[in-house]
Write a protein that binds this DNA or RNA. Structure first.
Lengths: 286, 286
DNA sequence: ACCAATGGTTCACAATATGAACCGATAAGC
DNA sequence: GCTTATCGGTTCATATTGTGAACCATTGGT
């Protein structure tokens, strides 16, 4: 969504043509839980587009009910037609319903907050989450999008998703904490280690008090579909807990992949097995 | 959505120009619970559009995650980005959450199945429904769109919604049963009576065994926002039950209107009061 | 009364959308 | 095993459509 309109190709600058339909639809991505209503001018600034054009686009969106105008403030907000379509989508592919019981179980097993996310285009969207009731302190993250470079889910997605994502991630290395990855080099290093272990892993890199572990989820083609993650209160994140999370993340990922119509690729299973046996070795030694 | 591209204006035929964004978005309206996956050629036929164009439109939709291709069948279906946007919409305007308890109460009070619907553009779509557990026979209608001419909710919408709807309704007088309204004249007559009573009313006009009563719901501008309805098993639909439904529909509509940020217009309240006192008169006479 | 926002509109110009014809693959008919 | 009919997808000359600087009308602050 936030891809630039330009890209470099064998030393020459190429202008990526965009259908106006695409430009229109991209306007929708600026609405979020934190800014649910946006005025025309504000939206122009956000989208870096002309006022007349943006207005025409909004009118098209309004006509099909994708946005509506708050008649009092004249600001725009997402429209009711989205509910209708989302309902239909859920009937077709009820990923959320499938995810919820799996997240619940994972939360019970680990005692921490669990998340499921979906890769759509180049964005990792939050699908559902579940808080454990075992501890009085627990992680409450209300995200709609998981930053690729700063979250365990994002790193899993980078490691096992389409290669183009790396370029997108590299363009936005926002520093959420002083542990956030801040260079393309260290990002690549991190992603490499995720590929080797089969788990995305972040220590206080998105929120100061949170450490997180994630596993990739796949669809019916064997391509990455999303991720499932455990967000632990950082002070609780011991090697023991990590091992526990890894084990249960694997079954959760397997079940989610199966529920979404796919099968976990053999190569991923192999990576997980290797990681688990390695951490088992360490544990028995100590 | 199903508006024609042509309209008559002071005796001359004018071609309505449509932005390609609009055409693109309109493709989405062909997906429904009953046909959740559609192939390229099939969609061309449904939308009556060119294959190349439709394909380009689908690609734009795919890029933002509004559709995705089932990789096995190559058919298209609604995409995951819709879930995300619908979630955001519900955070902004939680109409569904607000409607559910009201529908529950209405179902308890009437002993029948209740529905809430929203007008979006020229489509009345289902928002939520609630089944009563009082009777072993009950109405289960799994609709995502309410036909304007054949349902009580549709008639309420026609009667109190924007005038343009009438033209849309007149274009599609599909006969669901032999009680379905089948001429523009009788439709106009029906709508007129809805305007006089304040209630949409259909007897076996959509399903053979169902009679239904509906009241309009309004938003913060005083415009029609949707409808709330009771779908009764037709054999149970006595004058007594009708009166009971009317009374409780009024409070349900008031509460919904208020919950959605509006106030029930005085003229509607007046119409309802008149209808109730009339039916009360009849009741005491007999 | 003024200025600086806002939402919205116009019109000459330029870019994008369009669809008939096309390709390659798969499935059915015989 | 050859023909035919679909399917999803692509090409390219044509013309319809999109674009944005400049514009207007309102509103709210000073």
């Amino acid at each position: 969504m936030s891809l630039s309109n330009f890209f470099l190709k064998s030393d020459e600058l190429v202008v990526r043509k965009m259908s106006s339909a695409l430009k229109t639809l991209q306007l929708l991505s600026h609405f979020s839980a934190t800014s649910p209503e946006i005025g025309l001018s504000a939206l122009c600034r956000l989208a870096k587009r002309d006022k007349a054009t943006t207005h025409r686009h909004l009118q098209a969106l309004e006509e099909v009910g994708f946005v509506e105008q708050n008649p009092l403030t004249r600001q725009y907000r997402l429209g009711p037609a989205l509910l209708q379509l989302a309902q239909t989508r859920e009937m077709t592919v009820p990923r959320k319903e499938i995810a919820l019981p799996i997240l619940k179980r994972l939360a019970d097993q680990t005692g921490e907050t669990t998340h499921a996310s979906i890769l759509s285009g180049t964005t990792v969207f939050a699908l559902a989450s579940c808080e454990s009731t075992q501890h009085s302190t627990r992680v409450v993250i209300d995200l709609d999008r998981f930053p690729l470079h700063a979250t365990a889910s994002g790193l899993s997605t980078l490691a096992f998703g389409p290669d183009e994502l790396m370029a997108v991630a590299a363009k936005n290395l926002e520093a959420f904490t002083d542990h956030t990855i801040n260079s393309v080099e260290s990002l690549e290093e991190m992603v490499q280690s995720v590929r080797e272990t089969g788990f995305g892993r972040t220590i206080r890199s998105f929120e100061h008090e949170v450490s997180s572990l994630a596993a990739p989820v796949f669809d019916e083609t064997g391509n990455l579909a999303g991720a499932v993650s455990v967000a632990c209160v950082a002070t609780r994140f011991s090697p023991d807990l990590e091992r526990n999370c890894q084990e249960h993340l694997i079954t959760a990922s397997r079940d989610l992949t199966r529920g979404w119509g796919g099968t976990t690729p053999q190569r991923i299973e192999a990576i997980w097995a290797a990681t688990l046996s390695k951490s088992h070795e360490l544990e028995t030694k100590s």
